[in-house]
Amino acid sequence: MNKNVLIVDDSATVRVAVKMALKKEYEVIDAKNGKDALDRIEKFYAGGNRLNLIITDINMPIMGGMEFIKEVKKNRNVKFVPILVLTTESQTNMKMEGKKAGATGWLVKPFKPEQLLDVAKKVIR
Protein backbone atom coordinates (compact mmCIF):
# COMPACT_ATOMS: atom_id res chain seq x y z
CA MET A 1 0.00 0.00 0.00
CA ASN A 2 1.45 3.31 -1.05
CA LYS A 3 1.96 6.01 1.48
CA ASN A 4 2.27 9.54 0.25
CA VAL A 5 4.44 12.34 1.52
CA LEU A 6 4.27 15.99 0.48
CA ILE A 7 7.43 18.06 0.77
CA VAL A 8 6.99 21.83 0.71
CA ASP A 9 10.19 23.81 0.33
CA ASP A 10 11.32 26.61 -1.94
CA SER A 11 14.70 24.95 -2.37
CA ALA A 12 14.77 22.33 -5.11
CA THR A 13 17.80 20.84 -3.39
CA VAL A 14 15.83 20.13 -0.24
CA ARG A 15 12.91 18.75 -2.22
CA VAL A 16 15.18 16.37 -4.07
CA ALA A 17 16.98 15.41 -0.86
CA VAL A 18 13.65 14.52 0.74
CA LYS A 19 12.52 12.57 -2.29
CA MET A 20 15.70 10.57 -2.37
CA ALA A 21 15.62 9.86 1.33
CA LEU A 22 12.03 8.63 1.27
CA LYS A 23 11.56 7.13 -2.16
CA LYS A 24 12.19 3.54 -1.09
CA GLU A 25 9.32 3.58 1.36
CA TYR A 26 7.00 6.34 0.25
CA GLU A 27 5.70 8.18 -2.74
CA VAL A 28 6.81 11.79 -2.52
CA ILE A 29 5.14 14.77 -4.15
CA ASP A 30 6.40 18.30 -3.82
CA ALA A 31 5.44 21.96 -3.78
CA LYS A 32 7.41 25.18 -3.77
CA ASN A 33 5.55 27.13 -1.16
CA GLY A 34 2.45 27.02 1.01
CA LYS A 35 0.11 28.23 -1.65
CA ASP A 36 1.47 25.84 -4.23
CA ALA A 37 1.13 23.07 -1.65
CA LEU A 38 -2.54 23.84 -0.98
CA ASP A 39 -3.24 23.66 -4.72
CA ARG A 40 -1.30 20.43 -4.89
CA ILE A 41 -3.27 18.97 -1.99
CA GLU A 42 -6.56 19.91 -3.56
CA LYS A 43 -5.67 18.26 -6.85
CA PHE A 44 -4.16 15.25 -5.13
CA TYR A 45 -7.33 14.62 -3.14
CA ALA A 46 -9.52 15.32 -6.15
CA GLY A 47 -7.61 12.49 -7.82
CA GLY A 48 -8.67 10.17 -5.01
CA ASN A 49 -5.33 10.15 -3.24
CA ARG A 50 -4.46 10.69 0.37
CA LEU A 51 -1.46 12.13 2.11
CA ASN A 52 0.20 10.42 5.04
CA LEU A 53 2.73 13.07 5.91
CA ILE A 54 3.48 16.69 5.12
CA ILE A 55 6.99 18.07 5.50
CA THR A 56 7.28 21.82 5.28
CA ASP A 57 9.89 24.54 5.40
CA ILE A 58 9.08 27.70 7.36
CA ASN A 59 10.64 30.51 5.42
CA MET A 60 9.18 30.45 1.91
CA PRO A 61 7.99 33.08 -0.53
CA ILE A 62 4.29 33.70 -1.27
CA MET A 63 3.04 31.59 1.63
CA GLY A 64 5.35 30.59 4.45
CA GLY A 65 5.21 27.43 6.56
CA MET A 66 3.31 28.82 9.55
CA GLU A 67 0.49 30.17 7.46
CA PHE A 68 0.45 26.96 5.45
CA ILE A 69 0.10 24.83 8.60
CA LYS A 70 -2.79 26.99 9.75
CA GLU A 71 -4.47 26.49 6.37
CA VAL A 72 -3.90 22.74 6.57
CA LYS A 73 -5.59 22.68 9.94
CA LYS A 74 -8.64 24.31 8.37
CA ASN A 75 -8.74 21.81 5.51
CA ARG A 76 -11.03 18.84 6.14
CA ASN A 77 -8.98 16.54 3.95
CA VAL A 78 -5.62 17.01 5.56
CA LYS A 79 -6.45 18.32 9.01
CA PHE A 80 -5.23 15.12 10.67
CA VAL A 81 -2.19 14.49 8.51
CA PRO A 82 1.02 14.71 10.55
CA ILE A 83 3.24 17.66 9.72
CA LEU A 84 6.99 17.89 10.13
CA VAL A 85 8.56 21.31 10.15
CA LEU A 86 12.02 21.79 8.66
CA THR A 87 14.10 24.10 10.80
CA THR A 88 17.72 25.04 11.03
CA GLU A 89 19.80 25.02 14.14
CA SER A 90 19.54 28.76 14.40
CA GLN A 91 15.76 28.64 14.52
CA THR A 92 15.12 26.68 17.71
CA ASN A 93 12.14 28.83 18.58
CA MET A 94 10.51 27.63 15.37
CA LYS A 95 9.98 24.20 16.91
CA MET A 96 7.67 25.68 19.53
CA GLU A 97 6.01 28.02 17.05
CA GLY A 98 5.47 25.11 14.72
CA LYS A 99 3.96 22.98 17.44
CA LYS A 100 1.68 25.82 18.43
CA ALA A 101 0.49 26.17 14.86
CA GLY A 102 -0.32 22.46 14.79
CA ALA A 103 2.77 20.72 13.52
CA THR A 104 3.52 17.22 14.75
CA GLY A 105 7.29 17.49 14.90
CA TRP A 106 10.35 18.95 13.32
CA LEU A 107 13.56 18.09 11.62
CA VAL A 108 16.77 20.08 11.68
CA LYS A 109 18.40 20.86 8.32
CA PRO A 110 20.63 19.56 6.90
CA PHE A 111 19.61 16.04 7.79
CA LYS A 112 20.89 12.66 6.75
CA PRO A 113 18.54 10.47 4.70
CA GLU A 114 18.32 7.89 7.54
CA GLN A 115 17.39 10.59 10.03
CA LEU A 116 14.52 11.75 7.89
CA LEU A 117 13.30 8.22 7.33
CA ASP A 118 13.40 7.57 11.09
CA VAL A 119 11.43 10.66 11.90
CA ALA A 120 8.96 10.03 9.10
CA LYS A 121 8.32 6.52 10.43
CA LYS A 122 7.71 7.98 13.84
CA VAL A 123 4.75 9.99 12.67
CA ILE A 124 3.33 8.17 9.66
CA ARG A 125 0.35 6.03 10.37
Binding site: D10, S11, A12, T13, V14, A17, N59, T88
Partner: peptide, 17 residues
Amino acid sequence: KTIFRSMHTLKGSAGFV
Protein backbone atom coordinates in the same frame (compact mmCIF):
# COMPACT_ATOMS: atom_id res chain seq x y z
CA LYS B 1 12.88 39.56 4.02
CA THR B 2 13.21 38.19 0.50
CA ILE B 3 16.97 38.62 0.56
CA PHE B 4 17.15 36.92 3.92
CA ARG B 5 15.00 34.08 2.72
CA SER B 6 17.02 33.60 -0.39
CA MET B 7 20.25 33.53 1.60
CA HIS B 8 18.67 31.14 4.06
CA THR B 9 17.53 28.82 1.28
CA LEU B 10 20.98 28.93 -0.25
CA LYS B 11 22.57 28.04 3.06
CA GLY B 12 20.16 25.20 3.66
CA SER B 13 20.65 23.80 0.17
CA ALA B 14 24.43 24.03 0.38
CA GLY B 15 24.29 21.93 3.55
CA PHE B 16 22.69 19.09 1.64
CA VAL B 17 25.46 18.87 -0.89
